[in-house]
Design a protein around this nucleic acid. Structure first.
Length: 220
DNA sequence: GCCCAGGTGGGTA
DNA sequence: TACCCACATGGG
């Protein structure tokens, strides 16, 4: 995909979807990390319910969650699914942040990008997607998180090669978009993926980017 | 009742 | 390294 084609796609997406207000609001890094862990393999709605449930029981701080009993975290976040894994991750990540980073994730603002990213990924339950979300949303670092929608949609649109892995998709998107657009591109590709470009809908008939979408060629 | 949403990590070849 | 599967809920 050329930069020109990619720019046209972004233009169409901007004209058809809005970027939520919260996207530019300042955020607490630790809280974003917890929300992102809760959101793994889970619909946003259930992530939000789980986060509210957790917030009711505990202050969302490394200290309080490191001290919490896993069973209590489980009860609070059950609605998010995968709750046994996630509750262990939340407690352990909190403990490690206290022990290794003095209870703060503010290093993401001061350390070089790659070092921050590696450090985040070294935490249990934090993979590349979760790390990239935290780095982009909290610190505006130049990375473009690849979730399942971003992965699927960018392949359908031939923005990236069909067999690209996580880093391949991220690198390809980052090479055709400017860092200032990483956040909107991430959010808008997700909007397109949720609304139109479904996993089981290869034709994407009503999709706003139809005329730009090579996948449409399979249509009869 | 079935399928989909949807990251990480552990195991196996 | 590449692939497969477990993890678990809510909603259509």
């Amino acid at each position: 995909m050329t930069e020109h084609g990619a720019t046209k796609i972004l233009h169409v997406l901007r004209n058809n979807f809005s970027i939520p207000q919260w996207a530019d609001a300042p955020k607490d890094v630790f809280q974003v990390l917890i929300m992102t862990v809760l959101s793994q393999a889970t619909a946003d709605r259930n992530m939000e319910r789980a986060f509210r449930g957790l917030s009711k029981r505990f202050p969302i701080t490394p200290k309080s969650l490191a001290d919490a009993r896993v069973e209590e975290i489980e009860v609070a976040i059950r609605v998010a699914g995968l709750y046994r894994n996630k509750s262990k991750v939340i407690k352990e990540v909190s403990r490690l942040i206290l022990e290794k980073f003095g209870g703060s994730l503010d290093f993401i603002y001061s350390l070089p990008f790659e070092e921050s990213r590696k450090t985040l990924i070294s935490l249990p339950g934090v993979g590349p997607k979760t790390a990239d979300v935290v780095l982009l949303f909290c610190a505006g670092k130049p990375t473009l998180p690849v979730d399942t929608h971003v992965n699927r949609v960018s392949k359908r649109l031939r923005l990236v090669s069909p067999n690209a892995d996580y880093e391949g998709v991220r690198g390809a998107l980052q090479s055709v978009y400017s860092p200032k657009d990483y956040l909107p591109v991430h959010l808008l590709l997700i909007s397109l993926g949720r609304r139109y470009c479904k996993a089981r809908n290869p034709l994407c008939k009503p999709c706003p980017v139809n005329t730009l979408c090579p996948s449409r060629q399979v249509e009869k």
